[in-house]
Amino acid sequence: MKFVDVAGVNDILPGKTRHVETKGIEIVLANVAGKIYAVSERCGHMNAPLSKGTLYENIITCPLHHATFDVRTGKMITGMVEHPLPDLDKAPKETQDEYRAIGMLAKGIRIHDLQSFPVKIQGDRVLVTIQ
């Protein structure tokens, strides 16, 4: 297994994430209580950037549809969460129908687990393996 240097340990504070890219692969690094994990940067639902989401303990939440994943394993925990748009009922009927149709399409998209990447800390550097 060949490890690639992607970031400094101090670049990812506890409870925070960082987007990196190596060999054309986007990765989100997550610091969970001082331990660094690496998973696919793109949500397994609709490709949103997970580094723009939130990290709480070991759970990363997608900023787009709020699906959650365990950064230790890449496994999906919860799927898409619907959030009604405020005042949608006041919008023109065509707009309401369009948003409902988009919501139905988004619900039908299967959510995939994230790819997890092995991490090694060497000195003050974070290294990952791309397989």
Results as ranks from 00 to 15, higher is better:
73 T>I: 04
127 L>E: 12
127 L>M: 10
94 E>Q: 05
37 Y>D: 08
112 H>Y: 12
108 G>H: 02
23 K>N: 13
34 G>M: 07
120 K>L: 11
79 G>F: 07
85 L>R: 07
126 V>W: 14
109 I>Q: 06
44 G>D: 02
93 K>T: 12
35 K>C: 07
22 T>Q: 14
9 V>H: 12
84 P>G: 07
20 V>H: 01
75 K>F: 14
129 T>P: 10
84 P>E: 08
1 M>D: 10
119 V>R: 04
99 Y>W: 15
88 L>H: 02
16 K>R: 11
117 F>R: 02
95 T>V: 15
65 H>S: 02
105 L>E: 05
25 I>N: 02
9 V>Y: 13
122 Q>I: 11
71 V>S: 01
62 C>I: 10
7 A>Q: 05
51 S>T: 05
34 G>W: 04
105 L>G: 00
26 E>F: 06
52 K>S: 12
90 K>E: 12
130 I>T: 07
13 L>V: 09
20 V>Y: 01
28 V>P: 00
22 T>L: 09
100 R>W: 04
54 T>E: 15
53 G>I: 07
126 V>D: 13
30 A>F: 01
56 Y>H: 11
72 R>E: 11
116 S>D: 13
103 G>S: 02
129 T>V: 10
22 T>G: 13
28 V>A: 03
19 H>W: 07
122 Q>P: 06
71 V>T: 01
79 G>T: 14
103 G>V: 01
103 G>P: 04
39 V>N: 11
96 Q>G: 06
14 P>R: 00
122 Q>R: 08
29 L>V: 00
104 M>V: 06
8 G>A: 05
62 C>K: 06
33 A>Y: 04
111 I>G: 09
19 H>Y: 13
71 V>W: 03
86 P>H: 02
15 G>V: 03
26 E>C: 09
112 H>G: 03
20 V>A: 00
92 P>D: 10
95 T>Q: 14
15 G>N: 00
122 Q>W: 12
100 R>P: 04
51 S>W: 05
17 T>Q: 00
79 G>D: 13
25 I>M: 03
21 E>Q: 15
83 H>Q: 12
6 V>I: 11
32 V>G: 01
101 A>V: 00
55 L>D: 11
54 T>Y: 10
38 A>K: 02
33 A>W: 10
81 V>P: 05
56 Y>P: 04
42 R>K: 14
82 E>W: 03
71 V>Y: 06
46 M>S: 15
27 I>K: 02
106 A>I: 03
70 D>Y: 06
25 I>Y: 03
115 Q>K: 15
54 T>S: 15
52 K>D: 14
129 T>W: 14
80 M>K: 09
94 E>I: 09
91 A>Q: 13
95 T>F: 12
70 D>P: 11
101 A>Y: 02
44 G>I: 04
20 V>C: 00
126 V>G: 12
125 R>M: 02
66 H>R: 14
112 H>K: 11
17 T>E: 00
113 D>Q: 04
54 T>F: 13
2 K>F: 08
108 G>K: 09
32 V>Q: 04
21 E>T: 13
87 D>K: 08
84 P>S: 10
71 V>P: 01
100 R>S: 08
123 G>Y: 06
